[in-house]
């Protein structure tokens, strides 16, 4: 399995456990599906918790509330790409 796929799996498991998503299993989350809105249905509190999680887990500080964040958080795939390029640990 490639590193990218492994990181995506890791993020899916983190999302499920950390955000306590009931009924949802790792294989239910499609890497390309939107995390917010119609896809996984995450909300602003999840976004905040996800931001903090990236900080503790990967040492990533999200610097500004910009449209770019929407892009990083758009799907597990995008998030994995963002983590890969910005992780400090």
């Amino acid at each position: 399995m490639s590193d990218a796929i492994l990181l995506e799996k890791e993020l899916k498991t983190l999302l499920i456990h950390h955000l306590k998503l009931e009924d949802i299993k790792e294989e239910d989350i499609l890497s390309e599906a939107p995390l917010f809105g119609d896809g996984l249905g995450l909300d602003s509190i999840d976004a905040l918790e996800l931001g903090l999680l990236l900080q503790t887990q990967y040492g990533i500080q999200i610097q500004e509330n910009s449209d770019k964040n929407d892009q990083y958080f758009s799907s597990v795939k995008a998030l994995a790409e963002f983590v890969k390029n910005n992780r400090q640990k």
Binding site: S44, A47, L48, G51, Q55, I62, Q63, E64, N65, N69
Partner: peptide
């Protein structure tokens, strides 16, 4: 004028 969301924005 913006709404702060993530803690680092405040720290900045």
């Amino acid at each position: 004028s913006e709404t702060i969301f993530f803690p680092p924005e405040l720290v900045n």
